[in-house]
Nucleic acid binder design. Structure first.
Length: 549
DNA sequence: CTAGGGTTAG
Protein backbone atom coordinates (compact mmCIF):
# COMPACT_ATOMS: atom_id res chain seq x y z
CA UNK A 1 0.00 0.00 0.00
CA UNK A 2 1.50 3.16 -1.12
CA UNK A 3 1.41 6.05 1.18
CA UNK A 4 2.90 8.95 2.81
CA UNK A 5 4.66 11.77 1.26
CA UNK A 6 6.63 13.04 -1.55
CA UNK A 7 9.47 15.29 -0.82
CA UNK A 8 11.34 17.63 -3.00
CA UNK A 9 14.75 16.31 -2.28
CA UNK A 10 16.81 14.02 -0.21
CA UNK A 11 17.98 16.74 2.10
CA UNK A 12 14.36 17.25 3.07
CA UNK A 13 13.86 13.51 3.30
CA UNK A 14 16.75 12.93 5.60
CA UNK A 15 15.78 15.94 7.62
CA UNK A 16 12.43 14.37 8.05
CA UNK A 17 14.02 11.12 9.07
CA UNK A 18 15.98 12.82 11.74
CA UNK A 19 13.04 14.78 13.07
CA UNK A 20 11.49 13.38 16.19
CA UNK A 21 8.38 12.20 14.46
CA UNK A 22 10.35 9.85 12.28
CA UNK A 23 13.05 8.61 14.51
CA UNK A 24 12.67 4.89 14.85
CA UNK A 25 9.37 5.17 13.05
CA UNK A 26 7.98 3.46 9.99
CA UNK A 27 10.89 4.22 7.70
CA UNK A 28 13.08 2.26 10.02
CA UNK A 29 11.03 -0.89 9.73
CA UNK A 30 11.64 -3.71 7.38
CA UNK A 31 8.30 -3.23 5.69
CA UNK A 32 9.02 0.25 4.47
CA UNK A 33 11.12 1.37 1.62
CA UNK A 34 12.44 4.58 0.26
CA UNK A 35 11.48 4.80 -3.37
CA UNK A 36 13.05 7.01 -5.93
CA UNK A 37 10.83 8.53 -8.56
CA UNK A 38 13.30 10.55 -10.46
CA UNK A 39 16.31 12.57 -9.60
CA UNK A 40 14.58 14.57 -6.97
CA UNK A 41 11.52 12.87 -5.65
CA UNK A 42 11.43 10.41 -2.87
CA UNK A 43 8.53 8.80 -1.16
CA UNK A 44 8.10 6.41 1.67
CA UNK A 45 6.16 3.33 0.85
CA UNK A 46 4.35 1.28 3.38
CA UNK A 47 3.77 -2.23 2.37
CA UNK A 48 3.26 -5.62 3.84
CA UNK A 49 6.55 -7.46 4.02
CA UNK A 50 6.63 -9.81 1.05
CA UNK A 51 8.35 -12.46 3.07
CA UNK A 52 9.78 -12.51 6.54
CA UNK A 53 13.49 -12.01 6.67
CA UNK A 54 14.72 -14.71 9.01
CA UNK A 55 18.06 -13.37 9.97
CA UNK A 56 16.64 -10.12 11.23
CA UNK A 57 13.91 -11.60 13.39
CA UNK A 58 14.41 -11.48 17.13
CA UNK A 59 13.49 -14.34 19.36
CA UNK A 60 10.24 -12.58 20.17
CA UNK A 61 9.52 -12.57 16.45
CA UNK A 62 9.22 -8.81 16.37
CA UNK A 63 9.85 -7.32 12.95
CA UNK A 64 13.23 -5.76 13.45
CA UNK A 65 14.73 -3.17 11.18
CA UNK A 66 16.53 -4.96 8.43
CA UNK A 67 20.09 -4.12 7.50
CA UNK A 68 19.47 -5.35 4.00
CA UNK A 69 16.58 -2.98 3.58
CA UNK A 70 18.76 -0.16 4.70
CA UNK A 71 21.57 -1.10 2.43
CA UNK A 72 19.10 -1.01 -0.42
CA UNK A 73 18.03 2.48 0.55
CA UNK A 74 21.56 3.74 1.11
CA UNK A 75 22.64 2.17 -2.15
CA UNK A 76 19.85 3.91 -4.06
CA UNK A 77 20.54 7.28 -2.49
CA UNK A 78 24.27 6.86 -3.14
CA UNK A 79 23.53 6.09 -6.78
CA UNK A 80 21.81 9.46 -7.00
CA UNK A 81 24.99 11.03 -5.66
CA UNK A 82 23.32 12.35 -2.54
CA UNK A 83 26.34 11.31 -0.57
CA UNK A 84 25.91 13.49 2.46
CA UNK A 85 22.33 12.29 2.73
CA UNK A 86 23.61 8.72 2.86
CA UNK A 87 25.88 9.64 5.73
CA UNK A 88 23.12 11.27 7.71
CA UNK A 89 20.83 8.31 7.06
CA UNK A 90 23.64 6.06 8.23
CA UNK A 91 23.93 8.05 11.42
CA UNK A 92 20.20 7.52 11.94
CA UNK A 93 20.83 3.81 11.73
CA UNK A 94 23.18 4.09 14.65
CA UNK A 95 20.50 5.82 16.67
CA UNK A 96 17.99 3.09 16.10
CA UNK A 97 20.46 0.26 16.71
CA UNK A 98 20.40 -1.26 13.27
CA UNK A 99 23.59 -3.16 12.75
CA UNK A 100 25.91 -2.45 9.91
CA UNK A 101 27.54 -5.01 7.72
CA UNK A 102 30.18 -5.10 5.01
CA UNK A 103 27.72 -3.71 2.47
CA UNK A 104 26.83 -0.71 4.60
CA UNK A 105 30.39 0.19 5.34
CA UNK A 106 31.42 -0.16 1.71
CA UNK A 107 28.66 2.24 0.68
CA UNK A 108 29.87 4.61 3.36
CA UNK A 109 33.46 4.53 2.13
CA UNK A 110 32.19 5.28 -1.34
CA UNK A 111 30.23 8.29 -0.10
CA UNK A 112 33.06 9.78 1.94
CA UNK A 113 35.54 9.90 -0.88
CA UNK A 114 32.96 11.36 -3.22
CA UNK A 115 32.68 14.16 -0.69
CA UNK A 116 36.44 14.64 -0.87
CA UNK A 117 36.78 13.11 2.58
CA UNK A 118 39.08 10.23 1.91
CA UNK A 119 40.30 10.48 5.50
CA UNK A 120 36.87 9.43 6.73
CA UNK A 121 36.81 6.61 4.18
CA UNK A 122 39.94 5.27 5.75
CA UNK A 123 38.53 5.62 9.24
CA UNK A 124 35.58 3.46 8.16
CA UNK A 125 38.17 0.78 7.56
CA UNK A 126 38.93 1.00 11.26
CA UNK A 127 35.28 0.35 11.98
CA UNK A 128 35.52 -2.97 10.20
CA UNK A 129 38.06 -4.23 12.66
CA UNK A 130 36.20 -2.82 15.63
CA UNK A 131 33.06 -4.69 14.56
CA UNK A 132 34.96 -7.82 13.66
CA UNK A 133 34.06 -7.56 10.00
CA UNK A 134 36.36 -8.58 7.17
CA UNK A 135 36.75 -6.05 4.38
CA UNK A 136 36.22 -7.87 1.09
CA UNK A 137 37.21 -7.31 -2.51
CA UNK A 138 34.38 -4.78 -2.89
CA UNK A 139 35.72 -2.76 0.00
CA UNK A 140 39.28 -2.74 -1.28
CA UNK A 141 38.23 -1.92 -4.81
CA UNK A 142 36.19 0.99 -3.50
CA UNK A 143 39.15 2.27 -1.51
CA UNK A 144 41.40 1.95 -4.54
CA UNK A 145 38.96 4.03 -6.55
CA UNK A 146 38.96 6.64 -3.81
CA UNK A 147 42.73 6.91 -3.90
CA UNK A 148 42.70 7.19 -7.66
CA UNK A 149 40.11 9.98 -7.65
CA UNK A 150 42.42 11.90 -5.34
CA UNK A 151 45.38 11.29 -7.60
CA UNK A 152 46.96 9.05 -4.99
CA UNK A 153 48.05 6.43 -7.49
CA UNK A 154 50.93 5.16 -5.38
CA UNK A 155 48.67 4.35 -2.44
CA UNK A 156 46.20 2.65 -4.76
CA UNK A 157 49.00 0.49 -6.13
CA UNK A 158 50.22 -0.32 -2.62
CA UNK A 159 46.76 -1.47 -1.67
CA UNK A 160 46.58 -3.65 -4.77
CA UNK A 161 49.89 -5.27 -3.94
CA UNK A 162 48.81 -5.83 -0.35
CA UNK A 163 45.73 -7.61 -1.66
CA UNK A 164 47.79 -9.80 -3.94
CA UNK A 165 50.22 -10.72 -1.18
CA UNK A 166 47.56 -11.06 1.50
CA UNK A 167 46.10 -14.19 0.02
CA UNK A 168 42.57 -14.24 1.40
CA UNK A 169 41.25 -11.42 -0.75
CA UNK A 170 42.57 -11.51 -4.30
CA UNK A 171 41.91 -8.62 -6.67
CA UNK A 172 39.48 -9.51 -9.43
CA UNK A 173 38.81 -8.16 -12.89
CA UNK A 174 36.93 -5.17 -11.43
CA UNK A 175 39.88 -4.27 -9.20
CA UNK A 176 42.24 -4.35 -12.14
CA UNK A 177 39.75 -2.44 -14.26
CA UNK A 178 39.56 0.26 -11.60
CA UNK A 179 43.34 0.64 -11.51
CA UNK A 180 43.50 0.73 -15.29
CA UNK A 181 40.92 3.49 -15.36
CA UNK A 182 42.99 5.37 -12.81
CA UNK A 183 46.00 5.23 -15.12
CA UNK A 184 43.84 6.38 -18.01
CA UNK A 185 42.48 9.29 -16.01
CA UNK A 186 46.03 10.47 -15.38
CA UNK A 187 46.60 10.26 -19.12
CA UNK A 188 48.98 7.35 -18.67
CA UNK A 189 47.69 5.11 -21.44
CA UNK A 190 50.89 3.12 -21.67
CA UNK A 191 50.71 2.10 -18.01
CA UNK A 192 47.11 1.07 -18.62
CA UNK A 193 48.11 -1.05 -21.60
CA UNK A 194 51.00 -2.58 -19.67
CA UNK A 195 48.63 -3.75 -16.97
CA UNK A 196 46.27 -5.06 -19.65
CA UNK A 197 49.10 -7.17 -21.05
CA UNK A 198 49.86 -8.51 -17.58
CA UNK A 199 46.23 -9.48 -17.18
CA UNK A 200 46.25 -11.24 -20.53
CA UNK A 201 49.18 -13.34 -19.33
CA UNK A 202 47.78 -13.96 -15.88
CA UNK A 203 44.79 -15.82 -14.50
CA UNK A 204 42.49 -12.83 -14.34
CA UNK A 205 41.73 -12.19 -17.99
CA UNK A 206 40.57 -8.74 -19.12
CA UNK A 207 36.93 -8.50 -20.14
CA UNK A 208 34.94 -6.14 -22.32
CA UNK A 209 34.80 -3.45 -19.64
CA UNK A 210 38.59 -3.36 -19.35
CA UNK A 211 39.02 -3.06 -23.12
CA UNK A 212 36.31 -0.40 -23.28
CA UNK A 213 38.09 1.62 -20.60
CA UNK A 214 41.31 1.73 -22.58
CA UNK A 215 39.65 2.21 -25.97
CA UNK A 216 37.75 5.15 -24.54
CA UNK A 217 40.88 6.67 -23.07
CA UNK A 218 42.79 6.35 -26.35
CA UNK A 219 39.88 7.94 -28.22
CA UNK A 220 39.72 10.75 -25.71
CA UNK A 221 43.34 11.54 -26.47
CA UNK A 222 42.51 11.24 -30.20
CA UNK A 223 44.79 8.23 -30.52
CA UNK A 224 42.08 6.73 -32.67
CA UNK A 225 44.41 4.49 -34.64
CA UNK A 226 45.63 2.81 -31.47
CA UNK A 227 42.07 2.52 -30.28
CA UNK A 228 40.98 0.84 -33.52
CA UNK A 229 43.92 -1.55 -33.28
CA UNK A 230 43.04 -2.53 -29.73
CA UNK A 231 39.45 -2.88 -30.89
CA UNK A 232 40.32 -5.46 -33.53
CA UNK A 233 42.71 -7.20 -31.15
CA UNK A 234 39.90 -7.52 -28.64
CA UNK A 235 37.56 -9.02 -31.22
CA UNK A 236 40.21 -11.48 -32.37
CA UNK A 237 40.29 -12.71 -28.76
CA UNK A 238 36.61 -13.46 -29.06
CA UNK A 239 35.36 -10.52 -27.04
CA UNK A 240 32.40 -8.92 -28.81
CA UNK A 241 32.06 -5.13 -28.68
CA UNK A 242 28.93 -3.42 -27.43
CA UNK A 243 27.31 -0.04 -27.83
CA UNK A 244 29.78 1.48 -25.38
CA UNK A 245 32.76 0.35 -27.44
CA UNK A 246 31.27 1.83 -30.59
CA UNK A 247 30.23 5.07 -28.90
CA UNK A 248 33.80 5.59 -27.70
CA UNK A 249 35.21 4.95 -31.16
CA UNK A 250 32.65 7.18 -32.85
CA UNK A 251 33.44 9.90 -30.36
CA UNK A 252 37.12 9.55 -31.20
CA UNK A 253 36.71 9.81 -34.96
CA UNK A 254 34.12 12.59 -34.70
CA UNK A 255 36.55 14.68 -32.69
CA UNK A 256 38.91 14.42 -35.63
CA UNK A 257 36.12 15.51 -37.95
CA UNK A 258 36.28 12.15 -39.69
CA UNK A 259 32.60 11.88 -40.46
CA UNK A 260 33.07 9.17 -43.05
CA UNK A 261 34.82 6.99 -40.52
CA UNK A 262 31.98 7.69 -38.12
CA UNK A 263 29.49 6.60 -40.75
CA UNK A 264 31.43 3.43 -41.34
CA UNK A 265 31.40 2.62 -37.63
CA UNK A 266 27.69 3.41 -37.36
CA UNK A 267 26.92 1.08 -40.24
CA UNK A 268 29.18 -1.60 -38.84
CA UNK A 269 27.53 -1.56 -35.42
CA UNK A 270 24.04 -1.65 -36.86
CA UNK A 271 25.01 -4.59 -39.06
CA UNK A 272 25.95 -6.41 -35.86
CA UNK A 273 22.59 -5.58 -34.31
CA UNK A 274 24.16 -3.14 -31.92
CA UNK A 275 22.02 -0.01 -32.03
CA UNK A 276 23.06 3.51 -31.22
CA UNK A 277 21.52 4.75 -27.99
CA UNK A 278 21.13 8.14 -26.40
CA UNK A 279 24.86 8.31 -25.61
CA UNK A 280 25.81 7.61 -29.22
CA UNK A 281 23.40 10.22 -30.53
CA UNK A 282 24.57 12.73 -27.97
CA UNK A 283 28.12 12.30 -29.22
CA UNK A 284 26.93 13.13 -32.73
CA UNK A 285 24.84 16.09 -31.60
CA UNK A 286 27.66 17.45 -29.52
CA UNK A 287 30.40 17.16 -32.10
CA UNK A 288 28.19 18.67 -34.79
CA UNK A 289 27.45 21.58 -32.46
CA UNK A 290 31.11 22.06 -31.67
CA UNK A 291 31.82 22.21 -35.40
CA UNK A 292 29.21 24.93 -35.68
CA UNK A 293 26.79 22.65 -37.53
CA UNK A 294 23.84 23.24 -35.25
CA UNK A 295 21.30 22.79 -38.04
CA UNK A 296 22.63 19.31 -38.67
CA UNK A 297 22.61 18.65 -34.94
CA UNK A 298 18.94 19.62 -34.87
CA UNK A 299 18.43 17.07 -37.63
CA UNK A 300 20.05 14.38 -35.51
CA UNK A 301 17.69 15.25 -32.67
CA UNK A 302 14.79 14.77 -35.08
CA UNK A 303 16.13 11.36 -35.98
CA UNK A 304 16.44 10.46 -32.32
CA UNK A 305 12.81 11.30 -31.76
CA UNK A 306 11.77 9.30 -34.83
CA UNK A 307 13.62 6.34 -33.39
CA UNK A 308 11.95 6.68 -30.02
CA UNK A 309 15.14 7.69 -28.28
CA UNK A 310 14.28 10.60 -26.03
CA UNK A 311 16.74 13.45 -26.12
CA UNK A 312 17.87 14.11 -22.57
CA UNK A 313 19.36 17.08 -20.80
CA UNK A 314 22.79 16.24 -22.24
CA UNK A 315 21.35 16.49 -25.75
CA UNK A 316 19.74 19.84 -25.10
CA UNK A 317 22.74 21.20 -23.23
CA UNK A 318 24.91 20.43 -26.24
CA UNK A 319 22.44 22.21 -28.52
CA UNK A 320 22.41 25.24 -26.22
CA UNK A 321 26.16 25.35 -26.28
CA UNK A 322 26.13 25.09 -30.06
CA UNK A 323 23.81 28.08 -30.32
CA UNK A 324 25.91 30.08 -27.87
CA UNK A 325 28.99 29.33 -29.95
CA UNK A 326 27.25 30.81 -32.97
CA UNK A 327 26.22 33.83 -30.91
CA UNK A 328 22.58 32.77 -31.26
CA UNK A 329 21.96 33.15 -27.59
CA UNK A 330 18.26 33.79 -28.14
CA UNK A 331 17.92 30.30 -29.57
CA UNK A 332 19.89 28.88 -26.67
CA UNK A 333 17.48 30.54 -24.30
CA UNK A 334 14.56 29.00 -26.21
CA UNK A 335 16.05 25.54 -25.73
CA UNK A 336 16.44 26.33 -22.05
CA UNK A 337 12.78 27.30 -21.84
CA UNK A 338 11.79 24.16 -23.71
CA UNK A 339 13.67 22.14 -21.10
CA UNK A 340 11.99 24.06 -18.30
CA UNK A 341 8.60 23.25 -19.79
CA UNK A 342 9.46 19.54 -19.80
CA UNK A 343 9.98 19.55 -16.02
CA UNK A 344 12.94 18.02 -14.16
CA UNK A 345 15.25 18.40 -17.18
CA UNK A 346 17.12 21.56 -16.33
CA UNK A 347 20.16 20.69 -14.29
CA UNK A 348 23.26 22.46 -13.06
CA UNK A 349 24.94 21.91 -16.41
CA UNK A 350 22.03 23.56 -18.24
CA UNK A 351 22.29 26.66 -16.10
CA UNK A 352 26.03 26.58 -16.38
CA UNK A 353 25.93 26.35 -20.17
CA UNK A 354 23.62 29.31 -20.55
CA UNK A 355 25.46 31.30 -17.89
CA UNK A 356 28.65 30.62 -19.80
CA UNK A 357 27.00 31.74 -23.02
CA UNK A 358 25.99 35.04 -21.45
CA UNK A 359 29.42 35.51 -19.91
CA UNK A 360 31.21 34.88 -23.19
CA UNK A 361 29.06 37.59 -24.77
CA UNK A 362 29.73 39.98 -21.91
CA UNK A 363 26.15 39.90 -20.66
CA UNK A 364 27.21 39.47 -17.08
CA UNK A 365 23.99 40.86 -15.63
CA UNK A 366 21.89 38.26 -17.40
CA UNK A 367 24.34 35.61 -16.26
CA UNK A 368 23.99 36.73 -12.66
CA UNK A 369 20.20 36.66 -12.95
CA UNK A 370 20.40 33.04 -14.03
CA UNK A 371 22.86 32.29 -11.25
CA UNK A 372 20.47 33.69 -8.64
CA UNK A 373 17.62 31.80 -10.27
CA UNK A 374 19.47 28.49 -10.00
CA UNK A 375 20.39 29.10 -6.37
CA UNK A 376 16.79 29.98 -5.68
CA UNK A 377 15.76 26.63 -7.12
CA UNK A 378 18.02 24.83 -4.70
CA UNK A 379 20.54 23.85 -7.35
CA UNK A 380 24.09 24.06 -6.06
CA UNK A 381 26.37 26.04 -8.33
CA UNK A 382 29.54 24.06 -8.85
CA UNK A 383 33.14 24.94 -9.58
CA UNK A 384 32.46 25.19 -13.30
CA UNK A 385 29.56 27.60 -12.85
CA UNK A 386 31.63 29.86 -10.63
CA UNK A 387 34.52 29.63 -13.06
CA UNK A 388 32.25 30.83 -15.88
CA UNK A 389 31.10 33.76 -13.78
CA UNK A 390 34.63 34.69 -12.72
CA UNK A 391 35.49 34.68 -16.40
CA UNK A 392 32.48 36.84 -17.19
CA UNK A 393 33.45 39.46 -14.63
CA UNK A 394 37.05 39.45 -15.87
CA UNK A 395 35.85 39.90 -19.44
CA UNK A 396 33.91 43.05 -18.59
CA UNK A 397 36.86 44.34 -16.56
CA UNK A 398 35.21 44.01 -13.16
CA UNK A 399 38.23 42.29 -11.73
CA UNK A 400 37.40 43.14 -8.12
CA UNK A 401 34.09 41.39 -8.38
CA UNK A 402 35.78 38.43 -10.02
CA UNK A 403 38.03 38.13 -6.97
CA UNK A 404 35.08 38.46 -4.63
CA UNK A 405 33.32 35.62 -6.40
CA UNK A 406 36.51 33.60 -6.22
CA UNK A 407 36.43 33.93 -2.43
CA UNK A 408 32.71 33.36 -2.26
CA UNK A 409 32.86 30.06 -4.09
CA UNK A 410 35.37 28.76 -1.57
CA UNK A 411 33.17 29.90 1.27
CA UNK A 412 30.39 27.87 -0.36
CA UNK A 413 32.58 24.80 -0.43
CA UNK A 414 33.33 24.86 -4.15
CA UNK A 415 37.05 24.58 -4.61
CA UNK A 416 38.69 26.46 -7.47
CA UNK A 417 40.70 24.22 -9.76
CA UNK A 418 43.46 24.88 -12.27
CA UNK A 419 40.92 26.23 -14.74
CA UNK A 420 39.47 28.69 -12.24
CA UNK A 421 42.91 29.89 -11.29
CA UNK A 422 43.93 30.27 -14.91
CA UNK A 423 40.94 32.48 -15.66
CA UNK A 424 41.48 34.75 -12.67
CA UNK A 425 45.20 34.80 -13.32
CA UNK A 426 44.53 35.86 -16.90
CA UNK A 427 42.15 38.56 -15.74
CA UNK A 428 44.71 39.92 -13.30
CA UNK A 429 47.54 39.86 -15.84
CA UNK A 430 45.45 41.58 -18.51
CA UNK A 431 44.57 44.23 -15.94
CA UNK A 432 48.25 44.68 -15.08
CA UNK A 433 47.86 43.46 -11.51
CA UNK A 434 50.98 41.40 -11.67
CA UNK A 435 51.80 41.21 -7.98
CA UNK A 436 48.37 39.87 -7.15
CA UNK A 437 48.78 37.41 -10.02
CA UNK A 438 52.08 36.16 -8.65
CA UNK A 439 50.50 35.81 -5.23
CA UNK A 440 47.77 33.66 -6.76
CA UNK A 441 50.37 31.61 -8.57
CA UNK A 442 52.09 30.99 -5.24
CA UNK A 443 48.78 29.81 -3.85
CA UNK A 444 48.50 27.27 -6.66
CA UNK A 445 51.97 25.95 -5.98
CA UNK A 446 51.19 25.65 -2.27
CA UNK A 447 48.05 23.68 -3.10
CA UNK A 448 50.10 21.38 -5.32
CA UNK A 449 47.77 21.93 -8.26
CA UNK A 450 48.93 20.56 -11.59
CA UNK A 451 50.31 23.75 -13.06
CA UNK A 452 50.20 23.36 -16.80
CA UNK A 453 51.41 25.20 -19.87
CA UNK A 454 48.26 27.35 -19.95
CA UNK A 455 49.16 28.88 -16.59
CA UNK A 456 52.74 29.58 -17.60
CA UNK A 457 51.60 31.11 -20.88
CA UNK A 458 49.34 33.49 -18.96
CA UNK A 459 52.17 34.50 -16.64
CA UNK A 460 54.58 34.99 -19.52
CA UNK A 461 51.99 37.18 -21.19
CA UNK A 462 51.50 39.16 -17.99
CA UNK A 463 55.25 39.73 -17.75
CA UNK A 464 55.42 40.78 -21.39
CA UNK A 465 52.52 43.22 -21.03
CA UNK A 466 54.19 44.92 -18.06
CA UNK A 467 57.47 45.16 -19.94
CA UNK A 468 59.33 42.53 -17.93
CA UNK A 469 60.65 40.73 -20.96
CA UNK A 470 63.69 39.35 -19.13
CA UNK A 471 61.56 37.54 -16.56
CA UNK A 472 59.20 36.39 -19.30
CA UNK A 473 62.10 34.91 -21.23
CA UNK A 474 63.45 33.21 -18.10
CA UNK A 475 60.11 31.60 -17.44
CA UNK A 476 59.81 30.54 -21.08
CA UNK A 477 63.28 29.01 -21.14
CA UNK A 478 62.62 27.14 -17.91
CA UNK A 479 59.57 25.36 -19.31
CA UNK A 480 61.31 22.26 -20.60
CA UNK A 481 62.99 21.68 -17.25
CA UNK A 482 59.49 21.51 -15.79
CA UNK A 483 58.57 18.92 -18.40
CA UNK A 484 56.26 21.33 -20.21
CA UNK A 485 55.98 21.96 -23.94
CA UNK A 486 55.14 25.45 -25.19
CA UNK A 487 52.01 25.45 -27.36
CA UNK A 488 50.76 27.76 -30.13
CA UNK A 489 49.62 30.31 -27.63
CA UNK A 490 52.91 30.31 -25.76
CA UNK A 491 54.80 30.93 -28.99
CA UNK A 492 52.43 33.70 -30.02
CA UNK A 493 52.81 35.42 -26.67
CA UNK A 494 56.57 35.09 -26.66
CA UNK A 495 56.96 36.24 -30.25
CA UNK A 496 54.79 39.32 -29.82
CA UNK A 497 56.44 40.05 -26.48
CA UNK A 498 59.87 39.97 -28.05
CA UNK A 499 58.67 42.18 -30.91
CA UNK A 500 57.21 44.77 -28.54
CA UNK A 501 60.52 44.83 -26.65
CA UNK A 502 62.28 45.47 -29.95
CA UNK A 503 64.06 42.11 -29.95
CA UNK A 504 63.03 41.34 -33.51
CA UNK A 505 65.85 38.95 -34.25
CA UNK A 506 65.02 36.77 -31.26
CA UNK A 507 61.37 36.90 -32.22
CA UNK A 508 62.22 35.60 -35.68
CA UNK A 509 64.19 32.71 -34.20
CA UNK A 510 61.29 31.85 -31.98
CA UNK A 511 58.96 31.90 -34.96
CA UNK A 512 61.05 29.53 -37.05
CA UNK A 513 61.37 27.18 -34.09
CA UNK A 514 57.61 27.12 -33.88
CA UNK A 515 57.24 26.54 -37.61
CA UNK A 516 59.45 23.46 -37.43
CA UNK A 517 57.46 22.13 -34.54
CA UNK A 518 54.12 22.90 -36.13
CA UNK A 519 55.01 20.77 -39.12
CA UNK A 520 55.64 17.86 -36.79
CA UNK A 521 52.36 18.41 -35.04
CA UNK A 522 50.32 18.51 -38.23
CA UNK A 523 51.40 15.03 -39.25
CA UNK A 524 49.59 13.13 -36.63
CA UNK A 525 47.58 9.96 -36.58
CA UNK A 526 44.98 11.70 -38.72
CA UNK A 527 46.39 10.50 -41.98
CA UNK A 528 46.45 6.89 -40.88
CA UNK A 529 42.75 6.21 -40.56
CA UNK A 530 41.22 3.41 -42.55
CA UNK A 531 40.83 3.74 -46.26
CA UNK A 532 38.01 5.88 -47.54
CA UNK A 533 37.86 8.08 -44.49
CA UNK A 534 38.65 11.70 -44.87
CA UNK A 535 39.44 14.20 -42.24
CA UNK A 536 38.81 17.54 -43.78
CA UNK A 537 35.36 17.07 -45.20
CA UNK A 538 33.64 18.24 -42.05
CA UNK A 539 31.73 20.98 -43.86
CA UNK A 540 30.63 18.87 -46.76
CA UNK A 541 28.05 16.14 -47.16
CA UNK A 542 26.47 16.70 -43.80
CA UNK A 543 23.71 14.24 -44.40
CA UNK A 544 25.33 11.12 -45.68
CA UNK A 545 26.04 10.25 -42.11
CA UNK A 546 22.58 8.84 -41.69
CA UNK A 547 21.52 7.81 -45.13
CA UNK A 548 22.27 4.15 -44.95
CA UNK A 549 20.34 2.96 -41.95
C1' DC B 1 21.95 -4.53 -0.62
C1' DT B 2 28.43 -2.88 -1.75
C1' DA B 3 33.33 -2.17 -6.45
C1' DG B 4 34.98 -1.20 -12.89
C1' DG B 5 33.39 1.04 -19.07
C1' DG B 6 30.56 5.39 -23.19
C1' DT B 7 27.67 11.66 -23.88
C1' DT B 8 27.26 17.87 -22.01
C1' DA B 9 29.34 22.81 -19.13
C1' DG B 10 34.77 26.37 -17.38
Amino acid sequence: MLKMMMMRNIAAASFYCSSRRWRGMPCLHSNSTLVVFDNNYFAFFHSQPSKPIKSTRTQLDQPRPSVVRFNQILGQVAKLKHYSAVISLYNQMGVSRIGHDVYTLTILINCYFHLNQMGFSLSVLGKFFKLGLEPDVFTFTTLIKGFLLENRVAEAATLLHKMMRGGNCQPNVVTFGTIIRGFCMKGNNSAAIQLLRKMEEGACKPNLVVYNTIIHSLCKDTLVVDALNLFSEMMSKGIAPNVITYTSLIHGVCKLGAWKEATRLLNEMVSKNIFPDVFTFNVLVDTLCKEGMVVEAEGVVEIMIQRDIDPDSVTYNSLMDGYCLRREIGKAKKVFELMLSKGSMVDVVSYCTLINGYCKHKKIDKAMMLFLDMCHKGLVADTITYTSLVDGFCKVGRIDYAQKLFSKMQACGQLPNVRTYSILLDGLCKNRQLSRAMQLFGEMEAKKLDIDIVIYSILIEGLCITGKIESARDLYCGLSSKGLQPNVRTYNIMISGLCIAGLTHEAKMCLSKWKRKAVLLMVGPLTQLSEGSSIINRHQGQWYLFKQW
